[in-house]
Every structure is written in C-alpha cells, then in structure tokens.
Design a binder for these strands. Structure first.
Length: 809
DNA sequence: AGCACGCCGACT
DNA sequence: GTCGGCGTGCTC
C-alpha cells in the first residue's frame, strides 16, 4: 500500500510513501503521517491519496507513524486546497501551511548528544569543537541552535560534520509537538468524615495553621469531594502555599486535569425586533437561497445587515447546520461575536491569525466534530474543516483584507468562499454598503440575486458630508497644523455636545518624511526604496517595509547638509496636535503600533465605547465597521494621498473607504457630520459621496474598466521579479515580457518599475496581465505563463531571479 | 523551504 | 587548512 502525501513546503507535487503492513489499517485520507523527507528532516504530512500502484522511478521510503486517530480534514477540503494551488499558481504545500493551525504543522529538530561508543581524543579538537564538548558535558542534549549560540558561528554545519567524523557526537532527529493542552489544578479530598475522632485529630493537628484549618472546615461544610484549586482559593481566601501544605500532609490530593481553552457556552436569548425593511430583505433572501442563488445584500451603512444575518444563522441552527461568518478585520470579530451571543442560542467561536495557536487547534477540532456551530473569523477561517456547512456570510465583501499578499497562497477569502459554498452545497451571502465592481456586476447580470436595504436603521438621516478646500484654506490662512478652522470649529461643537470625534489619517507614525532643508531630499532606508518614517516614541527613523531603524543624526545623502525638517504627517503627530488644539478632550490613537496586542486593541475600543475617550485618531483600522453610538463627527484630514494611487482600483478604493468612514458618523437617532479636507474638492468621487450615489459611481467606473479591459472584464494577474543586481533584473524582465508579449500583446503591461522598486536589497520589476476571464482559456493562459517563466529560467544568468505570482491582485 | 555539495576567495 | 558566501539541485 502506498500513499501520496502533502508536505508543508513550497515544492511541486505529492510525495509517495510506502505504508508498512502494521500501519495499513490506520491509514485514511486527511490524517497526518510522520515521514522522513530528505536525509535529515521529518515532517507531519497530510495523506491526500491512497494507492496500490508501485512507483516506477524511485523506491519510496516507509512512513514512520500515523499521527491522527481521525482525519483532521475531509476530502472536500483537500479538493479546495487543490483548487487553490491551481488557481493561485502556488504549491499545495503552501496551501497546507496557510490552512492548518500552527500546532498541526510539525517539523523536526536536530538533537546532538555524545557518541557513547567511542573514546574521545581531546587533542584532536579545535577551539569551537572543544566548546561544544564542554557544553555537552553540562547538558546531555543540545540543539543546533544551542550550538550556534555557544560558538557564535554563522554556519554550524561544518562543525557538526567534523564532530561526527571524529566520533565525538551523534545526531538524531526528533519531531517537535507544538500543541500543549491546558491544565487546571484540582484538589481531591483524601480524608473521610465518618470517624469523628480522626477528624478532630486532623483539625487539632492544624492548630497552629489557621488558614489550613479553614480550608478543611470549608471542605467539610460544603461536603467537597473534589474542587478546582482556583475556586477553593477564592472561596476560602487562602493562598496556594496553604493548600500545598495540606497536599504535603496527605489530607488532600492534587491532580492536573486537561481543560478546554475554547469554551462552548450557550447564551441567553434576547429577541431582536426587525424593521419592515429587514423583514422583507430576509424573505427575499430565503427565497433566493431555495433556488440556490448567491445573494448580494446591498445595504447602506447602519441599515441593520447584522440582524438579517442573525436571522439567517438562526434558520441554519434549526436545521442543525454550521455557519461561517467572514469579516475583513480581526478587530471586528469580537464586536460581532458579542452581538451574536446576545441573540443566538448556540455555540459560537472566533478564529483569526492573531489568536493563540493552541486555541486555534482546539477550535479546529470542535468545528470538525460539529460541536461548534457558528464561527466568526478573518480570512484564514475559510480553511476550517466544517463538516455540515449550511451558510457562509462574507460581510464588507469589497474589503482588500480578504486578499492575502504574502506569503503564497495569495488567495482571496471572498472568492474562495464561492468555491467552498459550491463544494459543501452551502448558501452564500455577500454584504456591502458599496459593493466591489466584480460582485455588483454579477448581481446586475443576475448571476447573484441583489437584495437592497436603502434606509438606515431607525430612519436616521445619512451623514452630512462637507468637502473642505485645502487650497483655499491655505491661501486665506485658515489652517492650523493641518486642521482647517472650519474643522476645528466643528470638532469643538461636537465636543461641547459631549459627542465623540473620529479623525482618520491613513498613515502611521509621526511624520512620514525627514527631509533635507537644503535640497528637499528625504532620508531613505538603506535596503529599500522608501523614505523613513519618524516615530516619536522611539525617537528613531523606521522603515515600514523592513523595520530598519536609524538615528536622526547624519548628513544628507544628496547635498551633505545636516539640517532636516519633518514633513507630512502621520497618526502620531495628529494625535499630538489634536491634544494641543483641544486641550480639554481626551485624545487616543488606534493604529498598528498601538494595537499590536489583542488586549491593547480591545481595551482601546472599550474605552472609546464607554466615552472615556473623546477623540480617536486612527488609520483605516478605525473605519472598518465599528459601531460607536456616540460618534457624530468624522474627519478625513487629507483625502488626496489615496486619490492618486497608481492602481486601476484607486477610485473604487477611495469611494469605498470614504463611504465606510462616513458610515461611522451618526449611528443612533442623530444625523452625523463628515468633514473631508482635500486639495482637489471638485473630484467626482466627492460628488458621488455627497449624494450617496453608488450607481453614478458604478456607471462611470465600469465604463473605464470596460474601455481599458480591466476587471471585471478581465482577470488581473501580476508577475513580480526580484534580483539583487539591477542589470540582471532589467534584462530578465525584458526577456520574459518579450517572450509573453507574442501571445498577450496589449494585455501585457510592463515590465514596469513598481512604486517601491527596491526592498531588502532586492530590485523589483512587475509584469501585469489582463487575462481573458473565460474559465478554460484562463487556465490555459496561466499554464502558458508558467511555461514561459520556465523558459526564462533556462537562461543561466536568470536562474537566481525570484519569481512571485499574484493572481487577482 | 532547507539542506548537501561543490567551488571560490579571504585569511592565517 | 579553515571559514564563510554563493549557486545549484533535490527531496518520495
């Protein structure tokens, strides 16, 4: 018996292993097996196929063992993995790496120990070898990393090889298990109540240990047979040492028990009353689902899409099915789960990459067993092994965070959910306040059913949007530190009414550039082609691409002058300015720097919800779907940076982002206000925004796309080439583009030097494609591109060029 | 991806 | 002779 397995590596194809007789009964598709791969490494690999065909060109190795008692994913999910590898042009091992929770992905570690069978001749050892010898005497077993640390050698390979040949050491590979169950201490009673004499004896024996006596008394009073130690300590107000003393005396026994990290709890029911609009939307959606149609729920911000989802979820629960609820941003999952918990009487879980890996593994298992019915998650949750999926909800469908960029697989969870819904015969609903052109076009073409909700919940009017002309304000000197006087007044009015303000600035840090006073040349990163950003809290210049840090001092690279000024502005500086402009208000900042940790972010959101913060300054993180009831003013300090992005989706992004931003203003009972500052106030996007006219935006934008054959009329794909040498990268990208242009003609763009052309000492070139969207030709075109890349690699000079493929950029 | 292996230059 | 860097090929 042979099996084809997926190894967690970026290598093409499956690998075939032989299954020894005694393991044959255990083998099943979707289980993990331990395999030797190459001379040294051991991996946990996933069984993808079972076969009796004998491989021709090689002798397969046997598997070491079967790691799982039951499959950890179904054949359907393996089908999805396969689809991803083909569609996104990556290796299936990379899909495995993205899909499985880290604790399932085991690799080996080399352990070094003394060779017991030989005498060691110390005189034959050099200095580094002697260091290892000494360390081994102290610690019987060392890892390769230990040896690296001890010797501070960069490469330890020669040293280990030499020590083996001198018969000093032996090496062994060991699988490292990453999953650790969570334990809880339990206290079990060891004395009996029956003999009163004995009981007295015990208590008397504790005469000088009052606290211990109290514990015993508590156990007697409550007739405790066993109790969680934590609870015992809490109830008796004692300390761990006091309980431990009783353990030592043999009166109680201590036991470590495995407990679930992911707690399944059923919560209380609270009924939501639906508006007429929600009821009718719900009815239509259900009808469409009966016809197996995918639905686009197009609802203005604050129209109450979540309640509609909740009702749909209830329906699935009744049928005993599972639901996947996808959101673009990790930060949103908690808010949604809190809301769902109030109204759904079922088992709920959260899943995203910021979640601890042991938790993720336990959640995975509960989804697999069907114990968990509803999972709210970010993009990686599409990989969860649902066995009985009934519905997928993709909210804020247009959001760019559903697409993964690095590493491969560069998938879009929104698009994957179409495939997942198809293979698991589940219903699918997309939600958006300003749908992506792709999805909306599908709806117009009747491929999806379009359900609209045009009124805001409680009939709150849409926010009033004001575009402020920065050119004009600058000319008339009506601007103070990036805030126009109009905006300052509006903020003051809002604060006076005890309402909250959100200031949106899509840039982290203090000031994006540190510019030479003499020649205006900025300080740049030494290994990337970007200007460094000043971070005040560290007092350093930081590269946002490679995290390179440097001091402020030093001369200008271009003219050698040494006086620099901060130019432009980021969230950190805006926070500081806001603090001085509005000194009565409490100002806080939310961006990737302040909310790196889960708790940091959550406490910030909580404080803002509780009105402990008056002004929140943030990057796009603050704009994504948060419901803050008391926010009545939202300000965008400079909309121009987003307007001029060199990307065919720039207008769409700005429109969606500004729609989303303005959706944060005025959510309950009152109309909110949105102030947008721009040097180009007559731009069409502002007009559409002011009139809340998605259709007008769509009509203009879709014309453009059609004219230039951009998505949704074609499929976009990017090849990125990287190399250290500038001349090689130029030659290679020209060579490849010329090979491909014969076939693609006008639909090949480039090679072009990207906006950021140099990252971590690598030069970058882009070649973009507009592929025909017909499924079959799409496949052929991708295959053709792969072949030509192979052809390029045949040229000796281009062998070390790194190629990255990105489908549906 | 990670490792083996070979080749080469720097240094002692 | 030793160390480290780099290119290349291979993994059932």
């Amino acid at each position: 018996l042979y099996i084809k397995v997926i190894v967690p590596l970026a290598v093409p194809n499956f690998f075939t292993y032989y299954v020894p007789e005694e393991l044959q009964a255990e083998i099943e598709i979707g289980k993990r097996v331990e395999v030797q791969f190459g001379a040294k490494r051991i991996y946990a690999a996933v069984v993808a196929e079972i076969t009796q065909e004998v491989p021709k060109d090689y002798v397969p190795k046997p598997i070491n063992s079967v790691l799982d008692e039951a499959p950890i994913l179904s054949q359907k999910h393996l089908q999805l993995w396969n689809w991803i590898a083909h569609y996104y042009l990556c290796h299936i091992g990379e899909v495995m790496l993205a899909a499985l929770p880290a604790s399932y992905k085991l690799t080996s570690e080399t352990k070094v120990s003394f060779n017991e069978n030989s005498e060691i001749d110390l005189s034959r050892l050099n200095d580094n070898e002697f260091l290892v010898y000494e360390a081994l005497q102290a610690n019987k077993i060392l890892t390769v990393k230990d040896i690296k640390d001890i010797t501070s050698l960069k490469s330890v390979y020669h040293l280990i090889k030499s020590l083996i040949s001198k018969q000093v050491i032996e090496v062994e590979e060991e699988l490292i298990y990453k999953y650790k169950p969570k334990y809880e201490d339990w206290i079990i009673r060891k004395f009996s109540f029956e003999e009163e004499d004995k009981l007295h004896q015990i208590l008397d024996g504790l005469n000088r240990a009052k606290k211990q006596q109290e514990i015993i008394n508590y156990i007697i009073a409550e007739d405790v047979k066993e109790i969680a130690k934590k609870k015992l300590l809490f109830e008796t107000r004692t300390t761990s040492n006091q309980v431990n003393a009783l353990v030592a005396k043999g009166l109680v026994h201590l036991e470590k028990r495995i407990i679930d990290r992911v707690k399944i709890e059923n919560t209380a029911l609270k009924k939501d009353v639906l508006t007429e609009q929600q009821k009718s939307a719900l009815k239509t959606i259900k009808q469409q689902f009966q016809d197996n149609k995918t639905v686009l729920l197009f609802g203005v911000t604050s129209s109450g899409k979540t309640q509609v989802y909740t009702e749909l979820i209830k329906e699935q629960i009744k049928l005993g099915k599972q639901v996947l609820y996808l959101l673009p941003e990790i930060a949103l999952t908690n808010q949604i789960i809190k809301r769902l918990k109030k109204t759904l009487n079922t088992t709920l879980g959260v899943y995203h990459s910021n979640y601890n890996s042991n938790n993720r593994l336990e959640l995975w298992q509960k989804v697999l067993k069907g114990e968990l019915k509803v999972v709210v998650g970010a993009r990686s949750a599409v990989f969860l092994p649902f066995t009985n999926l009934g519905l997928i909800i993709v909210d804020e469908e247009y959001d760019g965070s559903f697409k993964q960029f690095d590493p491969a697989p560069r998938y879009n969870a929104r698009d994957l959910s179409v495939i997942l819904a198809h293979i698991s015969k589940a219903n699918l609903i997309f939600g958006a306040a300003s749908p992506s052109l792709e999805i909306y076009t599908n709806a117009l073409n009747k491929k999806y059913a379009l359900v609209e909700m045009k009124e805001r919940f409680g009939n709150v009017a849409l926010p009033e949007i004001e575009i402020i002309d920065l050119k004009d304000a600058t000319r008339k000197n009506k601007i103070r530190n990036y805030f126009t006087l109009e905006l300052i007044e509006a903020i003051n009015e809002t604060l006076a009414k005890k309402e909250q303000v959100i200031i949106f600035q899509n840039r982290r840090g203090y000031a994006p550039a540190y510019v030479c006073d003499n020649c205006a040349y900025p300080k740049k990163c030494v290994q990337c082609d970007v200007t460094l950003t000043y971070h005040k809290y560290m007092d350093l210049l930081v590269c946002h691409l490679c995290h390179f840090k440097t001091q402020l001092e030093g001369n200008c690279k271009q003219c050698n002058h040494n006086v620099f000024t901060l130019r432009n502005f980021g969230t950190e500086q805006i926070e500081e300015i806001a603090k001085t402009l509005f000194d009565e208000a409490k100002v806080a900042r939310m961006d990737a720097d302040t909310s790196r940790s889960k708790s940091g972010r959550e406490s910030l959101i909580e404080q803002f919800e509780n009105n402990e913060i008056n002004i929140l300054v943030g990057t796009q993180m603050v704009t994504k779907g948060f419901d803050f009831d008391n926010v009545s003013l939202v300000a965008v300090l400079n909309a121009d940076a987003m307007l001029h992005f060199p990307d065919f989706r720039a207008t769409e992004r700005v429109f969606q982002q500004l729609m989303q931003v303005s959706g944060r203003a005025g959510r309950r009972n009152k109309q909110g206000r949105v102030f947008i500052q721009s040097y180009e106030p007559s731009h069409l996007v502002f007009k559409w925004l002011k009139t809340n006219d998605y259709k007008a935006f769509y009509d203009v934008e879709i014309m453009d796309r059609s004219l230039f054959n951009y998505p949704p009329y074609s499929r976009f794909m990017q090849i990125q080439l990287k190399h250290k040498s500038n001349s090689i990268i130029n030659k290679a990208s020209d060579y490849l583009a010329n090979l491909l242009r014969i076939h693609f003609g006008q639909n090949l763009l480039g090679p072009s030097i990207p906006f950021i052309s140099y990252v971590r000492n690598y030069n970058i070139r882009d070649i973009n494609f507009k592929l025909s969207k017909n499924q079959k030709t799409l496949k052929d075109q991708k295959q053709y591109i792969l072949e030509k890349i192979e052809d390029m690699k045949q040229v000796k000079e281009f062998k070390s060029v790194i190629v990255r493929l990105n489908v549906d950029v």
